[in-house]
């Protein structure tokens, strides 16, 4: 990609390449990227696209097909999918835009492009073994007891330690070294 200035306006111009689609194709969830025929039924079915102009699944998939790697990985776009799978249900060619965006997220994560809120949530899960340890106060304990439920939640936090070492330390190192 390069930029050129016309009439004082910066326009970014892209060169089409199949390299990014080939990369996405190899990631779990991204296999169907080249089946998309750009019919638009995903965008028509998408509640997020209906609620905001910022998000258009079909447009994102075309950007992947065109090879706009940097733009796609560094944008918030793939993180705006709320994974409701309506697009997957409706697509006639067997594409799941939701799955493709999950695949894009995992690539983006490897390169350190993760929204803050996701980073923090994952950090919490990998430490505590679950999401809401800090939110589980005495108040909630009492509520459970009143209902006859076990106030001890018995959540395991050791297994996630193994996962952190195996799958996330490398990422963290990559992030910190800025690669």
């Amino acid at each position: 990609m390069h930029t050129c200035t016309t009439k004082g306006q910066e326009k970014s111009i892209h060169v089409p390449t199949s390299a990014f689609a080939k990369e996405v194709e190899k990631v779990e969830g991204g296999e169907a990227i080249n089946k998309c025929i750009q019919c638009g039924i995903c965008t028509a079915s998408c509640v997020v696209a209906n609620a905001t102009d910022l998000y258009r699944p079909r447009r994102m998939i075309q950007k992947i097909i065109l090879g706009l790697r940097e733009e796609v990985l560094s944008s918030d776009q793939s993180w705006l999918c709320l994974n409701c799978r309506m697009c997957e249900e409706r697509c006639q060619e067997g594409v799941s835009p939701a799955e493709i965006f999950l695949a894009v997220r995992t690539i983006a994560a490897r390169e350190g492009h993760v929204p803050r809120v996701f980073k923090e949530a994952v950090k919490t899960v990998l430490e505590d073994g679950w999401m809401l340890k800090d939110a589980y106060t005495d108040f909630q304990e009492d509520e459970r007891e009143d209902l006859g439920l076990n106030p001890e939640l018995h959540m395991n936090n050791e297994f996630v330690g193994k996962l952190r070492k195996r799958y996330f330390e490398r990422k963290k190192a990559a992030e910190e070294s800025g690669s």
């Binding site: 990631v27 779990e28 969830g29 993180w79 994974n83 999950l102 997220r105 995992t106 994560a109 993760v114 996701f118 949530a121 994952v122 899960v125 990998l126 073994g129 679950w130 999401m131 076990n150 018995h154 959540m155 395991n156 936090n157 297994f159 996630v160 996962l163 195996r166 799958y167 996330f168 990422k171």
Partner: peptide, 24 residues
């Protein structure tokens, strides 16, 4: 009650690493 469980990994771990998600 199923004891000694962990988070299923939905949404957050799911978006970061496929194998970590599958493991959880």
């Amino acid at each position: 009650e199923l004891k000694d469980t962990n988070c299923c990994g939905a949404q957050y771990v799911e978006s970061m690493d496929r194998m970590a998600f599958a493991s959880m």
